[in-house]
Computed example of a mutant assay.
Amino acid sequence: MATKLENLEVSMISLVKSGANKKSIIYKSAKDVELNLSKDIKILKSDEEGVVYGIVYSPNEIDSQGDFADANTIKTAAYKFMKSGFAKNVDLEHSFNNVDAYVCQSWLIKSGDPMFPDEKEGSWAVAIKLESDELKDAVRKGEISGISMAGVANKIQAQETNKSENSLTNLIKGIENIFKQKREEKVEQDVLKAIQSGLDSYKQSIDELSLRIESLEKRVEFSEEALSKSAQKIDIKTDENQGVL
């Protein structure tokens, strides 16, 4: 499980065979003669004095020890390293015995960095001045191909951070579901109201039609009764030659 580093304080930078950050170093000198010694390291060789360039730490990249740090944590650590006067704290393979080298440059990578164009912005880069032939030879031979850091930090399980993020995400989703359910309930209620309104209107039309039929039936009955009474009062006269007059 990956752990996040917080409150990182770096007190030593170590020249190593392979760094925990899985990155190689670059060896550069005044002549800048480029030699490719292997797939993992690019060396710029010269007989004159040289400087090795490397990445101490990149933001949000899990190292070989399962740790990572964000950009702000790395920036704070880089500034504090220089402020504390640790430029001479360079050792070999975490021996904690200073070697004949020191950090001559320290910076945070920005987009288009000429030395590390492919590294993430916010990565901590350093230039280490090697002042012994032994160290320079070790770099040329590939015996030193990376840098590492030593210091202290608070380690937090990434799962705890994810748990908090998941809790917030679940809360947001829960609220969204409530509004969605309310919207669905409102739609359902509106549909029911529309159906009920249609039925009420249909029932009213039926009732009105029934009243009209009932009224018509009464008028027919009244007309038949009136006609029957009128027929009873008619005097029928006959003529022997012409029949009913």
Rank of each mutant, 00 (worst) to 15 (best):
L92N: 08
S167F: 12
Y57H: 00
I128C: 06
I213L: 12
A153V: 06
E176Q: 13
Q189T: 11
D32K: 14
F81A: 00
I147L: 06
K233I: 08
K193Y: 09
N166C: 01
N89F: 03
E184Y: 09
C104L: 06
E221F: 00
D67Y: 07
K229L: 02
K75H: 13
E9F: 01
D190A: 11
T169H: 09
A2C: 08
E131Y: 04
G243I: 05
K173E: 08
N162L: 14
Q159A: 11
I55S: 02
K75I: 11
F86A: 00
D207W: 00
H94L: 03
L171Y: 14
R140I: 14
K75F: 11
N36F: 11
A77V: 02
I195L: 12
G174M: 05
M82K: 07
E93D: 14
S84I: 03
E184L: 15
D137H: 14
F81N: 01
E6N: 07
D67K: 06
A78I: 01
A20T: 05
T169P: 01
S210A: 10
I13V: 13
I62S: 05
K193Q: 12
I43W: 07
G243Y: 07
G146W: 01
G243E: 06
N60W: 07
I213M: 11
K45F: 15
R183I: 07
K141S: 15
H94W: 02
V152Y: 09
A20G: 07
K45M: 15
Q181H: 10
K23T: 02
E214H: 11
L130G: 06
E93K: 05
V152Q: 09
R140V: 15
V103Q: 04
F222N: 15
A194T: 06
K28G: 08
V33T: 12
S111Q: 14
K182M: 11
A78Q: 00
E184Q: 15
K88W: 07
L35R: 14
A231M: 08
M115F: 10
Q204Y: 02
K42F: 03
E217D: 15
V99I: 10
S205N: 05
A87K: 10
R183P: 00
E221T: 00
L44K: 15
V244G: 01
E9R: 08
K186L: 12
V56Y: 01
E49M: 10
G122A: 11
I236F: 13
D32H: 12
L108Q: 03
V99T: 03
N89Y: 03
Q105W: 05
A2M: 09
Q196N: 14
I25R: 06
L245M: 09
T3A: 14
A69C: 00
L37V: 15
Y102A: 03
I147E: 01
I26L: 15
L92P: 05
Y79Q: 04
I43A: 09
K229S: 02
S230G: 00
K23W: 01
G151H: 02
A87F: 09
E49D: 12
W124A: 00
V33A: 13
G198N: 14
P114A: 00
D91H: 02
K173M: 06
G19H: 02
N36G: 10
I41H: 06
E61H: 04
N166P: 01
D235Q: 13
S106M: 03
I144V: 10
Y102L: 06
S223C: 04
A231V: 08
E240H: 06
A69F: 01
R219T: 13
I147W: 03
S46M: 03
E225N: 10
L130Y: 10
K203W: 02
L171G: 04
K233R: 05
L44F: 15
R183L: 08
E214A: 11
